[in-house]
Write a protein that binds this DNA or RNA. Sequence first.
DNA 1: ATAGATAATTATAATAATTCTAAATCCAAA
DNA 2: TTTGGATTTAGAATTATTATAATTATCTAT
Lengths: 146, 146
Amino acid sequence: MQLKPEYKERLDRALARTGLRPTKQREHVFSVLLEKLDHPTADDVYARARADMPTISLATVYNCLETLSASGLIKQVNFEREPTRYCPNLTAHAHFYCKESGEIEDIELSDDIINRLKAALPKGHTAHRIDIAFDGKCGGCHDGED
Amino acid sequence: MQLKPEYKERLDRALARTGLRPTKQREHVFSVLLEKLDHPTADDVYARARADMPTISLATVYNCLETLSASGLIKQVNFEREPTRYCPNLTAHAHFYCKESGEIEDIELSDDIINRLKAALPKGHTAHRIDIAFDGKCGGCHDGED
DNA sequence: ATAGATAATTATAATAATTCTAAATCCAAA
DNA sequence: TTTGGATTTAGAATTATTATAATTATCTAT
């Protein structure tokens, strides 16, 4: 897959900011994440990346995902004891995980709610990251319920 | 450690509800969690449990923690890629993890804020569980900052 | 362009947390 | 008590991830 110039620029700038090199692999892994926004695991990314770049290794996929996360281009998403998933949506959002369908949805959150959450912290604490994960049943899986 | 009658009763009732047997090991693991409310990992629990019950195995600790979670007596707490931690605080609360001191704190949340979060879900979705984890720096680690 | 220095990739081994398996033990009910 | 099913135990297996060491790619300064 070809990375759109807009994203290519964003990638190069983000890497330059931390003194990292733009490589084919980093570009490719980023494009894989942008192409299908379904919160793939590292293994999923590896499988998709190999379609266009058969020589890429799993270790490199992990390295690229780590680099992209550290550069702020993607986010890691964790559910209970499951493998980490990756997501290029940078807005403040939560995740909804339907265990029935296996689907993961982004849930956009207002600034207001984020601020209320931060306000619940004791004085002096600063949050660098807030992870919010819902587990449940999505609308589709409720229809035709038994 | 001896489980207070109040907790022993709670344990027995919760296990009976799901047809599970009250065993020495389950009782002991539960008491370990109630004794020190610091969100131990399974390994931590194993180490503490062995002090009074040297023959308990790690597999049993995992089994008991799973059983207690399934019976609703304790909760599992997950941070990024770290081992699962366990917590007998059953109120609706979030967790704050200070990566500097390694400390984990319970952050009590109002019903209001929980309801606002649930209201952010698309229609038809029902949440069976909400995980909220803050990563950051606690007050103590901000003092004497460099 | 080219050479040297450094960073990144690759294949594979290692690790860490958790789960599985099979045998032994325990408990509850007949 | 015997019997059947649940539980525990020890150790092997699994899964996701990280570390290692050799090779290759990229950058910088000539």
